[in-house]
Design a protein around this nucleic acid. Structure first.
Lengths: 146, 146
DNA sequence: TTATGTGCAAAGAGTTTGCCAGCTA
DNA sequence: TAGCTGGCAAACTCTTTGCACATAA
Protein backbone atom coordinates (compact mmCIF):
# COMPACT_ATOMS: atom_id res chain seq x y z
CA UNK A 1 0.00 0.00 0.00
CA UNK A 2 1.20 3.47 -0.88
CA UNK A 3 2.24 5.76 1.93
CA UNK A 4 0.33 9.02 2.15
CA UNK A 5 3.25 10.95 0.74
CA UNK A 6 3.93 8.46 -2.03
CA UNK A 7 0.34 8.91 -3.10
CA UNK A 8 0.87 12.67 -3.32
CA UNK A 9 4.08 12.19 -5.31
CA UNK A 10 2.30 10.01 -7.79
CA UNK A 11 -0.52 12.56 -8.05
CA UNK A 12 2.09 15.21 -8.79
CA UNK A 13 3.76 13.04 -11.41
CA UNK A 14 7.12 12.74 -9.66
CA UNK A 15 9.31 9.93 -10.87
CA UNK A 16 9.40 7.42 -8.05
CA UNK A 17 12.47 5.47 -7.14
CA UNK A 18 12.97 3.00 -4.31
CA UNK A 19 14.82 5.68 -2.38
CA UNK A 20 12.06 8.23 -2.75
CA UNK A 21 9.49 5.68 -1.74
CA UNK A 22 11.42 4.87 1.42
CA UNK A 23 11.86 8.52 2.35
CA UNK A 24 8.19 9.16 1.63
CA UNK A 25 7.30 6.30 3.92
CA UNK A 26 9.61 7.49 6.69
CA UNK A 27 8.02 10.92 6.70
CA UNK A 28 4.50 9.60 6.41
CA UNK A 29 5.12 7.57 9.53
CA UNK A 30 6.98 10.24 11.50
CA UNK A 31 4.87 12.06 14.03
CA UNK A 32 7.84 14.06 15.29
CA UNK A 33 9.88 16.63 13.39
CA UNK A 34 12.98 14.67 12.36
CA UNK A 35 16.16 16.33 11.17
CA UNK A 36 17.98 15.16 8.06
CA UNK A 37 20.22 12.75 9.90
CA UNK A 38 17.28 11.13 11.67
CA UNK A 39 15.43 10.72 8.38
CA UNK A 40 18.58 9.19 6.96
CA UNK A 41 18.89 6.74 9.84
CA UNK A 42 15.24 5.74 9.65
CA UNK A 43 15.53 5.31 5.91
CA UNK A 44 18.68 3.18 5.93
CA UNK A 45 17.04 0.99 8.54
CA UNK A 46 14.39 0.14 5.97
CA UNK A 47 16.83 -0.07 3.07
CA UNK A 48 20.58 0.44 3.42
CA UNK A 49 20.97 1.29 -0.27
CA UNK A 50 20.41 4.98 0.28
CA UNK A 51 22.88 7.81 0.73
CA UNK A 52 22.75 10.99 2.76
CA UNK A 53 23.00 13.01 -0.46
CA UNK A 54 19.81 11.43 -1.72
CA UNK A 55 18.09 12.22 1.55
CA UNK A 56 19.04 15.87 1.19
CA UNK A 57 18.00 15.93 -2.46
CA UNK A 58 14.71 14.20 -1.84
CA UNK A 59 13.78 16.30 1.16
CA UNK A 60 14.41 19.40 -0.88
CA UNK A 61 12.39 18.01 -3.76
CA UNK A 62 9.48 17.22 -1.46
CA UNK A 63 9.70 20.59 0.17
CA UNK A 64 9.64 22.40 -3.15
CA UNK A 65 6.63 20.33 -4.16
CA UNK A 66 4.93 21.48 -0.94
CA UNK A 67 4.78 17.93 0.31
CA UNK A 68 6.95 18.67 3.31
CA UNK A 69 7.54 21.70 5.47
CA UNK A 70 11.05 22.59 6.52
CA UNK A 71 11.63 24.17 9.91
CA UNK A 72 14.57 25.66 11.67
CA UNK A 73 14.22 25.56 15.41
CA UNK A 74 17.42 27.44 16.03
CA UNK A 75 19.93 24.63 16.41
CA UNK A 76 21.35 24.92 12.92
CA UNK A 77 19.69 21.80 11.56
CA UNK A 78 16.69 21.64 9.29
CA UNK A 79 13.74 19.63 10.54
CA UNK A 80 10.87 18.31 8.47
CA UNK A 81 7.24 17.45 8.80
CA UNK A 82 4.53 16.51 6.38
CA UNK A 83 2.75 19.61 5.08
CA UNK A 84 -0.76 19.52 6.39
CA UNK A 85 -2.27 22.57 4.77
CA UNK A 86 -3.48 23.95 8.05
CA UNK A 87 -0.97 26.35 9.50
CA UNK A 88 0.23 25.82 13.03
CA UNK A 89 2.95 27.10 15.30
CA UNK A 90 5.39 25.18 17.46
CA UNK A 91 6.26 24.97 21.11
CA UNK A 92 9.64 23.35 21.67
CA UNK A 93 10.26 21.60 24.97
CA UNK A 94 13.84 22.64 25.62
CA UNK A 95 14.31 19.84 28.14
CA UNK A 96 13.58 17.08 25.67
CA UNK A 97 13.51 18.63 22.20
CA UNK A 98 9.93 17.44 21.80
CA UNK A 99 7.81 19.67 19.60
CA UNK A 100 4.18 20.46 20.38
CA UNK A 101 2.02 21.93 17.65
CA UNK A 102 -0.63 24.49 18.38
CA UNK A 103 -2.92 26.84 16.56
CA UNK A 104 -4.46 30.04 17.78
CA UNK A 105 -6.82 31.95 15.56
CA UNK A 106 -6.39 35.23 17.40
CA UNK A 107 -2.63 35.18 17.05
CA UNK A 108 -2.90 34.42 13.35
CA UNK A 109 -5.20 37.38 12.87
CA UNK A 110 -2.86 39.63 14.81
CA UNK A 111 0.12 38.65 12.70
CA UNK A 112 -1.81 39.75 9.63
CA UNK A 113 -2.86 42.97 11.26
CA UNK A 114 0.60 43.90 12.49
CA UNK A 115 2.17 43.39 9.09
CA UNK A 116 -0.57 45.46 7.52
CA UNK A 117 -0.17 48.25 10.07
CA UNK A 118 3.56 48.38 9.32
CA UNK A 119 2.82 48.71 5.63
CA UNK A 120 3.59 45.16 4.59
CA UNK A 121 1.90 42.19 3.10
CA UNK A 122 2.49 39.02 5.11
CA UNK A 123 4.18 36.29 3.08
CA UNK A 124 5.28 33.90 5.78
CA UNK A 125 5.63 33.87 9.52
CA UNK A 126 6.83 31.78 12.33
CA UNK A 127 6.13 31.73 15.99
CA UNK A 128 8.09 29.46 18.24
CA UNK A 129 7.76 29.11 21.96
CA UNK A 130 10.69 27.60 23.82
CA UNK A 131 9.52 26.28 27.14
CA UNK A 132 10.03 23.85 29.99
CA UNK A 133 7.32 21.59 31.38
CA UNK A 134 5.46 23.18 34.27
CA UNK A 135 6.51 21.76 37.60
CA UNK A 136 3.75 19.30 38.44
CA UNK A 137 3.26 15.55 38.71
CA UNK A 138 4.95 14.73 35.43
CA UNK A 139 6.85 11.55 34.78
CA UNK A 140 10.38 12.43 35.84
CA UNK A 141 12.16 10.47 33.08
CA UNK A 142 11.59 13.14 30.45
CA UNK A 143 15.01 14.57 30.92
CA UNK A 144 17.38 13.54 28.21
CA UNK A 145 20.64 14.58 26.67
CA UNK A 146 18.98 17.71 25.44
CA UNK B 1 34.35 58.55 24.94
CA UNK B 2 33.22 55.02 25.70
CA UNK B 3 30.66 53.44 23.44
CA UNK B 4 27.49 52.28 25.16
CA UNK B 5 28.54 48.67 24.94
CA UNK B 6 32.08 49.35 26.09
CA UNK B 7 30.59 50.98 29.16
CA UNK B 8 28.59 47.83 29.87
CA UNK B 9 31.67 45.66 29.39
CA UNK B 10 33.60 47.70 31.86
CA UNK B 11 30.70 47.55 34.32
CA UNK B 12 30.75 43.77 33.95
CA UNK B 13 34.49 43.63 34.48
CA UNK B 14 35.39 42.19 31.08
CA UNK B 15 39.00 42.60 30.11
CA UNK B 16 39.03 45.11 27.28
CA UNK B 17 41.31 44.89 24.31
CA UNK B 18 41.47 47.09 21.24
CA UNK B 19 39.59 44.48 19.28
CA UNK B 20 36.78 44.22 21.79
CA UNK B 21 36.50 47.98 21.94
CA UNK B 22 36.17 48.20 18.18
CA UNK B 23 33.52 45.49 18.05
CA UNK B 24 31.67 47.14 20.92
CA UNK B 25 31.72 50.39 19.03
CA UNK B 26 30.52 48.81 15.79
CA UNK B 27 27.53 47.29 17.52
CA UNK B 28 26.76 50.38 19.53
CA UNK B 29 26.55 52.31 16.30
CA UNK B 30 24.65 49.70 14.28
CA UNK B 31 20.95 50.33 14.01
CA UNK B 32 20.42 47.36 11.73
CA UNK B 33 20.93 43.69 12.55
CA UNK B 34 24.35 42.92 11.04
CA UNK B 35 25.59 39.40 10.46
CA UNK B 36 29.07 38.30 11.49
CA UNK B 37 30.67 39.15 8.20
CA UNK B 38 29.20 42.64 8.22
CA UNK B 39 30.43 43.23 11.77
CA UNK B 40 33.82 42.01 10.63
CA UNK B 41 33.87 44.39 7.68
CA UNK B 42 32.77 47.36 9.76
CA UNK B 43 35.36 46.49 12.39
CA UNK B 44 38.29 46.11 9.99
CA UNK B 45 37.35 49.43 8.46
CA UNK B 46 38.04 51.03 11.83
CA UNK B 47 41.08 48.89 12.55
CA UNK B 48 42.45 46.27 10.19
CA UNK B 49 44.24 44.42 13.01
CA UNK B 50 41.30 42.19 13.76
CA UNK B 51 40.48 38.70 12.58
CA UNK B 52 37.21 36.99 11.81
CA UNK B 53 37.89 34.50 14.62
CA UNK B 54 38.03 37.32 17.11
CA UNK B 55 34.76 38.68 15.79
CA UNK B 56 33.12 35.31 16.36
CA UNK B 57 34.66 34.96 19.81
CA UNK B 58 33.75 38.46 20.88
CA UNK B 59 30.20 38.29 19.60
CA UNK B 60 29.73 35.07 21.50
CA UNK B 61 31.27 36.61 24.60
CA UNK B 62 28.97 39.61 24.39
CA UNK B 63 25.97 37.43 23.75
CA UNK B 64 26.71 35.25 26.76
CA UNK B 65 27.10 38.38 28.85
CA UNK B 66 23.65 39.46 27.65
CA UNK B 67 25.11 42.49 25.97
CA UNK B 68 23.99 41.36 22.53
CA UNK B 69 21.10 39.34 21.20
CA UNK B 70 21.70 36.78 18.53
CA UNK B 71 19.02 36.14 15.93
CA UNK B 72 18.56 33.63 13.20
CA UNK B 73 16.28 34.90 10.49
CA UNK B 74 16.38 31.67 8.55
CA UNK B 75 19.20 32.29 6.10
CA UNK B 76 21.79 30.28 7.98
CA UNK B 77 23.69 33.25 9.32
CA UNK B 78 23.58 34.66 12.82
CA UNK B 79 22.63 38.31 13.13
CA UNK B 80 23.22 40.53 16.14
CA UNK B 81 21.74 43.53 17.84
CA UNK B 82 22.36 45.26 21.11
CA UNK B 83 20.24 43.78 23.88
CA UNK B 84 17.76 46.40 24.91
CA UNK B 85 15.98 44.71 27.75
CA UNK B 86 12.58 45.34 26.26
CA UNK B 87 11.48 42.39 24.20
CA UNK B 88 10.37 42.94 20.65
CA UNK B 89 9.63 40.85 17.60
CA UNK B 90 10.84 41.24 14.03
CA UNK B 91 9.32 41.74 10.66
CA UNK B 92 11.74 40.92 7.85
CA UNK B 93 11.27 42.63 4.52
CA UNK B 94 12.05 39.76 2.18
CA UNK B 95 12.63 42.11 -0.73
CA UNK B 96 15.45 44.01 0.95
CA UNK B 97 16.45 42.05 4.06
CA UNK B 98 15.60 45.08 6.18
CA UNK B 99 14.36 44.27 9.64
CA UNK B 100 11.55 46.17 11.34
CA UNK B 101 11.10 45.80 15.07
CA UNK B 102 7.70 45.80 16.66
CA UNK B 103 6.09 45.08 19.97
CA UNK B 104 2.56 44.04 20.68
CA UNK B 105 1.41 43.61 24.24
CA UNK B 106 -1.51 41.37 23.37
CA UNK B 107 0.64 38.94 21.43
CA UNK B 108 3.12 38.76 24.28
CA UNK B 109 0.33 37.94 26.71
CA UNK B 110 -1.02 35.28 24.41
CA UNK B 111 2.35 33.58 24.07
CA UNK B 112 2.44 33.26 27.85
CA UNK B 113 -1.09 31.97 27.98
CA UNK B 114 -0.62 29.39 25.23
CA UNK B 115 2.47 27.93 26.86
CA UNK B 116 0.67 27.78 30.17
CA UNK B 117 -2.37 26.09 28.64
CA UNK B 118 -0.14 23.46 27.09
CA UNK B 119 1.43 22.78 30.49
CA UNK B 120 4.69 24.64 29.96
CA UNK B 121 6.58 27.54 31.37
CA UNK B 122 7.72 29.98 28.69
CA UNK B 123 11.49 30.41 28.61
CA UNK B 124 11.99 32.11 25.29
CA UNK B 125 10.04 32.80 22.16
CA UNK B 126 10.36 34.25 18.77
CA UNK B 127 7.91 35.62 16.32
CA UNK B 128 9.05 36.58 12.88
CA UNK B 129 6.94 37.98 10.11
CA UNK B 130 8.33 37.67 6.60
CA UNK B 131 6.67 40.19 4.38
CA UNK B 132 6.82 42.37 1.28
CA UNK B 133 6.05 46.07 1.22
CA UNK B 134 2.40 46.79 0.45
CA UNK B 135 1.92 47.99 -3.08
CA UNK B 136 1.63 51.75 -2.74
CA UNK B 137 3.66 54.84 -3.55
CA UNK B 138 6.94 53.49 -2.21
CA UNK B 139 10.29 54.44 -3.65
CA UNK B 140 10.89 51.82 -6.31
CA UNK B 141 14.64 51.45 -5.71
CA UNK B 142 14.22 49.24 -2.66
CA UNK B 143 14.70 46.12 -4.63
CA UNK B 144 18.15 44.67 -4.18
CA UNK B 145 19.99 41.42 -4.67
CA UNK B 146 17.84 39.95 -1.93
C1' DT C 1 15.98 4.69 -25.07
C1' DT C 2 16.61 8.92 -22.78
C1' DA C 3 16.03 12.07 -19.39
C1' DT C 4 16.43 11.83 -14.64
C1' DG C 5 18.07 9.96 -10.23
C1' DT C 6 21.82 8.03 -7.19
C1' DG C 7 26.30 7.17 -4.75
C1' DC C 8 30.55 8.81 -3.69
C1' DA C 9 33.70 12.00 -2.51
C1' DA C 10 34.98 16.64 -2.84
C1' DA C 11 33.61 21.30 -2.13
C1' DG C 12 31.18 25.20 0.27
C1' DA C 13 29.35 28.15 3.91
C1' DG C 14 29.29 29.33 8.49
C1' DT C 15 31.44 28.62 12.81
C1' DT C 16 34.72 26.78 16.29
C1' DT C 17 39.23 25.63 18.14
C1' DG C 18 44.42 24.34 19.15
C1' DC C 19 48.53 26.49 19.54
C1' DC C 20 51.70 29.95 20.51
C1' DA C 21 52.74 34.80 20.58
C1' DG C 22 51.01 39.15 22.54
C1' DC C 23 48.75 42.05 25.64
C1' DT C 24 45.78 43.48 29.89
C1' DA C 25 45.25 44.17 34.57
C1' DT D 1 54.29 38.73 35.60
C1' DA D 2 50.33 35.53 35.29
C1' DG D 3 46.80 34.50 32.78
C1' DC D 4 43.66 35.78 29.51
C1' DT D 5 43.29 37.18 24.46
C1' DG D 6 44.08 37.20 19.48
C1' DG D 7 45.84 35.55 14.84
C1' DC D 8 46.24 31.87 11.88
C1' DA D 9 45.03 27.87 9.87
C1' DA D 10 43.02 23.58 10.52
C1' DA D 11 38.89 21.28 11.85
C1' DC D 12 33.88 20.67 12.27
C1' DT D 13 28.92 20.58 11.06
C1' DC D 14 25.49 20.89 7.89
C1' DT D 15 24.49 21.05 3.13
C1' DT D 16 25.34 21.08 -1.90
C1' DT D 17 27.38 19.42 -6.17
C1' DG D 18 30.30 17.21 -10.22
C1' DC D 19 30.79 13.07 -12.27
C1' DA D 20 30.01 8.46 -13.83
C1' DC D 21 26.81 4.85 -13.41
C1' DA D 22 22.03 3.17 -12.77
C1' DT D 23 17.09 3.32 -13.56
C1' DA D 24 12.01 4.86 -14.29
C1' DA D 25 8.88 5.72 -17.69
Amino acid sequence: MLSRIEQICSDKGLKMTDQRRIIAQVLSESIDHPDVDLVYRRATELDPRISIATVYRTLRLFEEANILEKHDFGDGRARYEEASGDHHDHLINIKTGEVVEFYNQEIEAMKQQIAKDLGFELVDHRLELYATPSVSNESPDDDSSF
